[in-house]
Each structure stands twice: as C-alpha cells, then as structure tokens.
C-alpha cells in the first residue's frame, strides 16, 4: 500500500503505561508505600553511564540505534558524567591498566548506583585469560547483573537492563544504609 507522507499511519499498538503499584486509591488520592513509589520512579528513569571499551560497545551502539531502541525503557538520556548517573554499564574488556580507572568512575558515582557487566570479558575475562586482562570486573567493583555473550546480542543487553530495572524497582529504601552493604563496600575497599 502506497502511503501519502501526510496521512497519519495507523498506530502500531497502544503505548504501554507502567502499571501503578498496589495501594489504596479513591477519588483524588492514592496511598502507596513510599518504597514502591520511589522504586517505580527510579526504575523507569535510569540514567546509564556507558563505559564501552571494545566489541560490546559496538553492540551497545546497535542497541541504542533505531532498531532496538533502548530509549523504550526510560533510558533516553545517556549520562556521560559519572556524577549524574545511576547505572554503570561496563561493556568490553577491562585490562589491568584500566582497572583503577574503572574503580575511580565507580566511586565518583552517587548512591544509589547499580552496575551491569556486559559481555564475557567484563564478567570473567572471557577468552582473554592473559597476564594483561582483569579476570572479571567483580574483582574491583561490585556487580549487580551479568550479561553473558561475546558479544551479547542487543536482545540480551536489553534483557540485562530489564533485570536491572527489576532490581531497582524492588530495592528497599534502607538497603544502602544497611550493614551488609557497608560490608560489601568494605570488601572492595571502597569507602
């Protein structure tokens, strides 16, 4: 069917709206636990910091492109400054020379922050079991979600993002102040 540029195209589907959390609502008001409301807001407006070093970075570019369109998940804005970002996406090989820089970037991010490790290299060193490659970024910073693949397909990266969103949505307000979290950071010598 040939279409005139001016005639509006039929909508492909209804836009999806994030369902509101469970709570009591009536005319003009809604009560819901603060944790859930904050979780909902946080998870749908994550600002990711792409830390792309190699091959996986190219797949990330494809994920950001029009075909896979990461912006659908509330990620329109990439934050290239660590100070304003919530999610550190580590994509690609991290060499030992790079490891201190990665740690710096992580410590510069403000709480709460999450880390997504994309690809075999970032997760475990991958095929590069060599003297110069860090064998997994979890040796220097804590990681929330690992995405396997060398490189992972854009669908897998999106899946990893959705897993992160799940984590973000469910996170308790007090987790970052808990003993366990402090213990975790101490283990990585981050204070």
């Amino acid at each position: 069917m040939k279409q005139d540029a001016l005639t509006p195209r039929p909508a492909l589907g209804k836009p999806t709206i994030v369902p509101s959390p469970e709570g009591h609502s009536g005319p003009g008001f809604m009560t819901v636990s603060l944790e859930k409301a904050v979780g909902l807001a946080r998870k749908n407006s994550i600002w990711p910091l792409p830390f792309a070093t190699s091959c996986c970075g190219i797949e990330f570019m494809a994920t950001m492109g029009a075909n896979y369109d990461l912006a659908r998940f509330g990620m329109e804005r990439l934050s290239f400054s660590p100070r304003q970002s919530d999610l550190l996406m580590v994509m690609g090989t991290i060499a030992k020379k790079m490891a201190p820089i990665l740690r710096d970037v992580y410590t510069q991010m403000a709480e709460p922050k999450w880390v997504l490790s994309v690809g075999a290299c970032a997760s475990s060193g991958g095929i590069f079991d060599t003297y110069s490659v860090l064998q997994g970024i979890d040796r220097v910073i804590p990681v929330d979600v690992y995405v396997p693949g060398c490189p992972p397909r854009p669908e897998q990266i999106i899946d990893g993002i959705l897993k992160i969103q799940e984590l973000v949505g469910q996170e308790g307000m007090r987790r970052r102040y808990s003993k366990e979290y402090e213990e975790l950071l101490r283990k990585y010598k981050i204070d």
């Binding site: 030992k96 020379k97 060193g125 079991d129 060599t130 003297y131 110069s132 490659v133 064998q135």
Partner: peptide, 23 residues
C-alpha cells in the same frame, strides 16, 4: 607502550607465562 609502566617482565618472551596468575 601497552603494558603498565611498572610491569615487571617482558611478556612476549617465551619463558613468561601467558595466563593470569591470580586465577
């Protein structure tokens, strides 16, 4: 150029081990 300044060896000599020693 490629390794860190304070790297202790010349890695492509045949007697240097390939694999990461910390695994």
């Amino acid at each position: 150029i490629l390794n860190m300044e304070d790297f202790p060896a010349f890695p492509l000599r045949k007697d240097y081990p390939l694999e990461d020693p910390t695994r």
